[in-house]
Design a protein around this nucleic acid. Sequence first.
DNA 1: GCAAAAGTGTTCTTGGTACACCCATGG
DNA 2: CCATGGGTGTACCAAGAACACTTTTGC
Lengths: 232, 232
Amino acid sequence: MPERDHQRLKIAADLAILTVRENRLQVLTIIRDNPPFAGQCALPGGFLRVGETVEVAAERELREETGVDVRHSRLHLELLGVYSDPDRDPRGRVVSVAFLTLSPDLPIPTAGSDARRAFWAPVEAVRGNLAFDHDRILTAAVERARSLLEVTTLATAFCPDEFTIGDLRGIYEVVWGEVLDPRNFNRKVMRTPGFVEASGNQRVPEIGRPAALYRPGGAAMLNPPLLRSHRS
Amino acid sequence: MPERDHQRLKIAADLAILTVRENRLQVLTIIRDNPPFAGQCALPGGFLRVGETVEVAAERELREETGVDVRHSRLHLELLGVYSDPDRDPRGRVVSVAFLTLSPDLPIPTAGSDARRAFWAPVEAVRGNLAFDHDRILTAAVERARSLLEVTTLATAFCPDEFTIGDLRGIYEVVWGEVLDPRNFNRKVMRTPGFVEASGNQRVPEIGRPAALYRPGGAAMLNPPLLRSHRS
DNA sequence: GCAAAAGTGTTCTTGGTACACCCATGG
DNA sequence: CCATGGGTGTACCAAGAACACTTTTGC
């Protein structure tokens, strides 16, 4: 029988924090200050502390990196995966529990708690360049986000407090990477109970007809779901 | 800043191994030999060893408990969740990574590698009586299995090598806990490319018309999905 | 009026449900 | 013959796709 695990073992919580900025899907990225991978891009994250669950650790990292408290917002933390390759961290045995968050276009603190630089980066810009196995995590996060938009109301988490149906459609188009029919999209959103509720206000664009503004509705799940056109 | 985690930390892989036996959804259960919870029911599982990923550890536990090698079968191991409450294990800090497997009606070795008794138990029979937080894991496993049947071909993993469409329907009915229309079910399965392929054989029942036998098809995903009637 | 985006209505098609009906076997 | 489960055909309905058309603004 193989030897049992007596080596020093640590658990990390890593976060894929996605947003839509400038009409592109972007991910909160940090530049590492310390070895290993000093100077390279990575996802924010940190080690589990005494008495913390992995969820609490992830919330703490999110708060430290973005200043956002999960309990005072309608953000959502979702388990993405467990990354436990013995060689994934050159410092030793580190098992990473990865979480996904969809966030509106937040202001970013100038630096994280440990003086690392944090910024939004388009997913395509950092894909392939991340430290550790964070590329795998990012790829899984994007795919999960796409699926989540089909069955949950989380797209509203990408939006500001009040938004138009067109804003919401833009989120879907950017995350899914496909163009949607505005007319049909409108009706599907309206027909789904609890997805959005009218705020009573309007937004006047630079050009075109004013659009009604909405707030997130009470529902968390979409019923019926809002499916992408082609499924592989 | 809170103290970092210097205590002894272990990672366990726990398994929810589901099957359909005697027309009921059953779960592989062990009786614990050693404290804590000695004599009580629990899900099989064990600690991560040096050099193992959590997936490899889960495969090893599955092999030890059921004698089935994932690589030589069409079984499926799926990440269910991470359970990291600091007080979940009285022995100390143990973070559990839970996996789900759907298996055909396997013969069970008389005892696991560490002489624990292992047996199939109906889900309702053990729910509420499991050690640690394994009730939470089991509940999550059942719900996940129900969802998996909607979008994947995994129901065939519950079936023997050759099966009738009626067998397959029985799996869905037991796992979902609802009765399905045999006529419509037949057509949905046939219409879905790669779900099943005819073996050319027939099975003659005690009474009634012989049924064509099928094998799992090449597809892993169901397109279109096979949805339950009412979604909450 | 023109451009642009919001929003409605209508048709076509696809997939689900319900159910009538026939088929193939054992007794 | 009957009972039992396998399997096909069909009518109906709900939801998606495509798209013509109207509305409301700025210029």
